[in-house]
């Protein structure tokens, strides 16, 4: 972890930064430094070859450096001018607003940072980014846009996720299915606690509709180990009843259930050709982004 702290940004410092935009830019700078090459790929201005200028072509596309060398007008040809639309879908339910003693950030803040970083990257390369959050009572949706000013709206959304109430996957996924165009990219950030089989199926439906779906499954280290000792009054974060229990009594069975749950989510994703990323809130945020980006190089 100490090595990571040297290599990556300390989440505490990240938290103290002024706003999401600065955080995102800092993260992206770090990312690019570590990557040693631009992640531009499939961008809107992907260069392919030079062709001789012919009347009718746009004059702004003439490469004047080549004209200086050859005295001929050449025009840059772009192979595929993509119009990528990415949507970050962030779970803002109560279960996400949890950080154990081992974790520097709540799951909600953590995925917000990841989402903001990736959104910033997309926007920097000219893609349109939209966002949505889902919880029991609130459901925010931000259409995709590639405008620089749109980034502020997106970061506002991510900064003000509610962190209360039950998860409402179904409505969020349905909305996205309706509004996000096909071939768009969908990044889903959640802990997937309380998700049903039907809701998992909806994710697979999104993929089936030719969307590039990536699932970011966040977990807190305490959820993995149930590290508590003694009699505790466990309180749910989504309005459940309280449970008085000794963690020792339940630990083994709980860990087994949690493992089963994680495997279940993962297998659903993999079976549906959905890209799956699972990470703990103790992991460096950059590492999560890099992992995502590397898969797409």
């Amino acid at each position: 972890m100490s090595d990571m702290r040297q290599e990556y940004l300390d989440p505490d410092i990240l938290e103290e930064m002024g706003n999401m935009k600065i955080r995102a830019r800092t993260l992206v700078d770090g990312l690019l430094t570590g990557l040693h090459r631009s992640p531009h790929r499939g961008g809107a201005v992907e260069f392919a070859e030079y062709t001789k200028y012919t009347p009718g072509d746009e004059i702004r596309h003439i490469d004047w450096k080549v004209y200086g060398k050859t005295d001929e007008y050449y025009i840059k040809e772009y192979e595929d001018e993509t119009n990528l639309r990415a949507y970050v879908l962030v779970d803002g339910s109560g279960s996400m607003d949890f950080a154990s003693e081992q974790a520097p950030l709540t799951k909600l803040r953590y995925v917000s940072f990841v989402a903001a970083t990736l959104a910033y990257l997309f926007l920097r390369q000219g893609d349109a980014v939209g966002g949505a959050s889902f919880a029991e009572s609130t459901h925010e949706y931000l259409p995709a846009s590639s405008k620089e000013s749109h980034l502020d709206d997106l970061f506002y959304l991510l900064d003000h996720l509610p962190g209360t109430g039950e998860t409402n996957f179904e409505e969020a996924l349905r909305t996205l299915a309706e509004r996000a165009p096909r071939r768009s990219m969908v990044l889903i950030f959640s802990d997937f606690l309380g998700i049903s089989e039907d809701e998992m199926d909806l994710i697979r439906v999104l993929r089936a509709q030719r969307r590039d779906v990536s699932v970011f499954h966040v977990v807190d280290p305490a959820e993995m180990k149930l590290p508590y000792e003694g009699l505790r009054l466990f309180r749910g974060l989504e309005g459940q009843d309280k449970l008085l229990a000794d963690a020792d009594d339940l630990r083994d069975d709980y860990i087994e259930r949690m493992r089963s749950h994680l495997e279940s989510v993962k297998s659903h994703c993999q079976n549906g050709d959905v890209e799956y990323h699972r990470f703990s809130t103790t992991h460096p945020i950059e590492r999560i982004c890099l992992e995502f980006l590397r898969r797409r190089l």
């Binding site: 109560g94 279960s95 996400m96 949890f98 799951k107 802990d191 606690l193 309380g194 807190d220 305490a222 959820e223 149930l226 508590y228 003694g230 009699l231 505790r232 009054l233 466990f234 309180r235 749910g236 974060l237 989504e238 459940q240 009843d241 309280k242 449970l243 008085l244 229990a245 009594d249 339940l250 069975d253 709980y254 259930r257 949690m258 749950h261």
Partner: peptide
Amino acid sequence: INRREAAEQPFPALEMLMESDQKE
């Protein structure tokens, strides 16, 4: 007294804890 004064612990995966508690 221990029951009454047990420390409250917020926990997201309470459903799973409850299922484990029911079993044990």
